[in-house]
């Protein structure tokens, strides 16, 4: 039995990255009970590619954190590349990290050997289909860094409320343009 149909292609599943991210946005809204919000910022990369930056917002305090971005060619939603935020945690806070026991001489030898070798580089964050994108999105939202960012947004809630007591007063006075209108939300994705 032959099978010439490309694996992973489902003609009924044509969702663009933006549409899939909007689904994620709706899920966040319901799963967090409105405490956290996913914001999609549409932008353009320096190379001219379409880029969607994904931020999390803590609704009560209006504080935000950038989580990752999704990049694709104009008018060509796939392949799409997910770009996780650079890991800024020190190694002792990471559940796992790479280490090397090479001393400097073996390291130099290893570099020279690598220069002579052709190597396939797998980019685990590039996806070709909507199905793959959903799969990787689940994975990226479960990265330790992302979870930490989300928890940090929530955990500073009490301190933020204390500090914010002044802010709330300002908001009441809508005529004061210098005050942060923290309960007004910008119209973003």
């Amino acid at each position: 039995m032959t099978n010439y149909w490309p694996e992973g292609i489902d003609l009924t599943d044509k969702q663009s990255p933006l549409e899939i991210l909007r689904d994620a946005q709706a899920e966040w809204e319901s799963s967090s009970g409105g405490v956290l919000e996913l914001i999609l910022q549409e932008a353009e990369s320096q190379a001219g590619y379409d880029m969607i930056i994904i931020h999390a917002r803590h609704t009560a305090s209006n504080r935000t954190a950038s989580l990752f971005s999704v990049v694709s060619r104009k008018e060509n939603p796939y392949p799409t590349r997910l770009q996780p935020k650079e890991n800024e945690l020190p190694n002792f806070f990471k559940k796992s990290h790479k280490t090397s026991n090479l001393n400097s001489l073996t390291a130099i030898n290893s570099v020279i050997r690598q220069l002579n070798e052709e190597k396939w580089v797998n980019n685990e964050w590039v996806v070709d289909t909507p199905g793959e994108l959903r799969e990787k999105l689940e994975k990226i939202f479960n990265l330790g860094d992302i979870k930490s960012e989300i928890l940090n947004l929530i955990s500073t809630d009490v301190a933020q409320n204390d500090v914010d007591s002044g802010t709330r007063e300002d908001v009441k006075d809508a005529s004061d343009s210098d005050s942060p209108p923290s309960d007004e939300k910008a119209e973003l994705g």
Partner: peptide, 28 residues
Amino acid sequence: PRASTEKRFQCFCRHPDLDMTEVHSGFR
């Protein structure tokens, strides 16, 4: 002031009135 990016930037503030709360943690 509390922030999630303390590894990169450490802030020491003398007056609470200045606030300095982190309102956005981004890429560097």
